[in-house]
Design a protein around this nucleic acid. Structure first.
Length: 565
RNA sequence: CGGGGUGUGGCGCAGUUGGUUUAGCGCGCAGCGUUUGGGACGCUGAGGUCGGAGGUUCAAAUCCUCUCACCCCGACCA
């Protein structure tokens, strides 16, 4: 490819709208172009990177035994109503109407379609196990697209679905996918952390995410450096400890004038926050819910939502709280009636807490569970924090941020049961297939590589996914043989199977070098009068500062060696 | 959806406080010439409904109202 003919231009200045590194660099390199919020074009260079990633993904899926197919983007909305996700996905689902006023959805994922498909063709245990996948465009009307390619509304995703006869089979398929994913990230030069993830209210047993660790990541991860426990913040657990071992004392009312928050009450009474109980109000699917947790902890809304099996959860408004007869600032689980109470298990592992009295400026001392109050649900609904103890080994947990670049998920029979995807086993019994699903966003992976692998000059693409292997850079000089030699070399390199981008522009050295760096091409070849004195070209790696002179006659062989290594 | 911010040639910005003359600057783009090892220089030139609609006024990029788009922070996901 000649730079003079390449569609897309590099730009010097950072576009004002981009503040994520990968976004800035991809834009500057002329690899992507935004059309609307969360909707991008891939220009030729960017598309080459995307397709190389796609190639690696396809290769690993095939190696793992996957069969590639292609499902429709356009899907009857009924299918989504049948699974119940028309509701639970909410407005993320793009919907439209055909000329007969028939509702259709643009596929955000394909569990419904694939299960429907499997129900037609899988009939016997002899048809299983089965790994089916596709690489295809998904549509999700995200509430907030962000970070360039990191979170978009239209994107290429590889989604694989596994079908097995039983849990043991699913485990094998699942492990195959975990292994395949690890291969993919390694081949793309991206280190990842496999973390436990929330599987949502819909169920499913085991859900893990592959996280690329970077500051610009959207997710917070809690991990233990000692035992390698790692989990998404929304799922992470930590030791809460036993508070107070004393015998329960009788409840006493105390005046707490003007004290509303936990800090104020604890400070006023001269006790630590972990000797108090905190009450928080939520509205879950329209119903008021009362959540209680030890004062020093905070509620994890994802955990709470799962405990309630709610599809929508939000904090209650002040009006809703007072309307229910609750005194804000002195809310109490004691004597509470009329709504569901969810208590964090921390309230059961302590005695003589201070809680609200549900009277203005008044709190209760020596509140004990279950003597003074009970809950409909007692479970872990607390947020784990860095510095907490690990529940597995007692080590100290740490926090970091990451980009979710893949998700593997044991679905079980949720979909197969709903869509009648069953088979007849060896004994002649009909059973639903046991499913798993495995998603990987291609553009997101591309962005994550950029976040991880760049310097002040540009993204440093690993050879495996770089748009071209070699940047051929003649330094123009009238009357010299630079151009002649470069043209010849260009053809020789191409003939030798090397992907080369040839900067045939009459630009100054600085411009060309900076563009070579910005595009992140792994090898740069410079041809100039200086190198021709030695009948050679200069070879420089993008990752290294120093260069070497290679004889003209040896360049192609040398590069082939480097590229196949 | 809540909170914050920005819309002025392809890109980055100034001009808006305090109304009015041909709306500027840098980069990029086109032409000519001089240059050529880390973003060269000179001259010439093209390119703008000032996001949109309505209003106030002798006069609006600038003031008022409405609206749209995009970005960032939060609740969701590959």
């Amino acid at each position: 490819m000649r730079v003079s003919k390449l569609f897309g231009k590099t730009i010097r200045e950072v576009p004002a709208d981009a503040d994520t590194i990968s976004h800035q660099l991809l834009l500057r390199a002329g690899m992507i172009s935004q059309l609307a919020s969360g909707i991008y074009s891939y220009l030729p260079l960017g598309y080459r990177v995307l397709r190389k990633i796609e190639g690696i993904v396809r290769d690993e899926m095939n190696r793992a035994g996957g069969q590639e197919l292609h499902m429709p983007v356009l899907q009857p909305l009924e299918l989504w109503q049948q699974s119940g996700r028309a509701q639970s996905m909410g407005r993320v689902l793009f919907t439209l109407y055909d000329r007969r006023e028939h509702a259709l959805a643009l596929g955000p994922t394909h569990e419904e379609v694939i299960t429907h498909l499997a129900s037609r063709y899988v009939k016997s245990y002899r048809d299983l196990p089965l790994l089916l996948y596709q690489i295809q465009t998904k549509f999700r009307d995200e509430p907030r697209p962000r970070g360039g390619l990191i979170r978009v509304r239209e994107f290429a995703m590889k989604d694989l679905y596994s079908f097995d006869t039983d849990e043991a089979g699913l485990e094998i398929s699942y492990q195959k996918m975990v292994q395949a994913y690890e291969n993919i990230y390694r081949r793309c030069g991206l280190p990842v952390m496999l973390v436990e993830a929330d599987s949502g209210a819909i169920g499913g047993k085991d859900s893990r995410e592959f996280m690329a660790i970077t500051e610009s990541g959207e997710d917070e991860i809690i991990y233990c450096p000692d035992c390698r426990y790692a989990a998404n913040m929304e799922k992470a657990v930590a030791v809460k400890g036993q508070i107070g071992g004393s015998e329960p004392l009788p409840v006493v009312e105390v005046a707490t004038p003007g004290m509303g928050t936990i800090e104020e009450v604890a400070g006023y009474l001269g006790i630590p926050a972990n000797r108090t109980l905190k009450a928080v109000f939520y509205v879950a699917d329209g119903a008021l819910v009362f959540a209680v947790i030890r004062g020093d902890l905070t509620i994890n809304e994802v955990k709470l939502k799962n405990q309630l099996h709610a599809t929508e959860l939000r904090m209650a408004t002040e009006a809703e709280v007072t309307g229910a007869g609750i005194v804000a600032g002195a809310a109490s689980p004691v004597g509470l009636k009329g709504f569901r109470v969810v208590a964090d298990d921390s309230v059961t592992t302590g005695t003589n807490f201070v809680a609200g009295a549900n009277k203005p400026d008044t709190h209760l001392k020596n509140v004990n569970y279950p003597r003074d109050f009970t809950a409909d649900i007692v479970a872990d609904i607390a947020t784990a924090r860095a510095g907490d103890r690990c529940t597995r080994c007692g080590g100290t947990l740490r926090a970091t941020r990451g980009i979710e670049v893949g998700h593997v998920f044991k679905l079980g029979t949720i979909y197969s049961a709903k869509f009648g995807a069953s088979f007849i086993d060896e004994k002649g019994e009909t059973r639903p297939t046991v499913m798993g699903c495995y998603g990987l966003g291609l553009g997101r992976l591309m962005a994550a590589v950029g976040e991880y692998n760049h310097d002040e000059k540009g993204i440093v693409w690993p050879l495996s996914i770089a748009p071209y292997h070699v940047y051929l850079c003649p330094l123009f000089r009238e009357g010299s043989r630079v151009t002649e030699v470069a043209e010849k070399l260009y053809h020789e390199l191409e003939a030798g199977g090397i992907e080369v981008i040839y900067d045939d522009r009459e630009e100054s050295a600085g411009v060309k070098f900076n563009d070579a760096d910005l595009l992140g091409i792994p090898f740069r070849l410079t041809v100039s009068p200086r190198t021709l004195e030695k009948e050679g070209v200069e070879l420089k790696k993008r990752t290294e500062k120093d260069a070497e002179i290679v004889k003209l006659t040896e360049v192609v062989t040398r590069l082939r060696g480097l590229i196949s290594a």
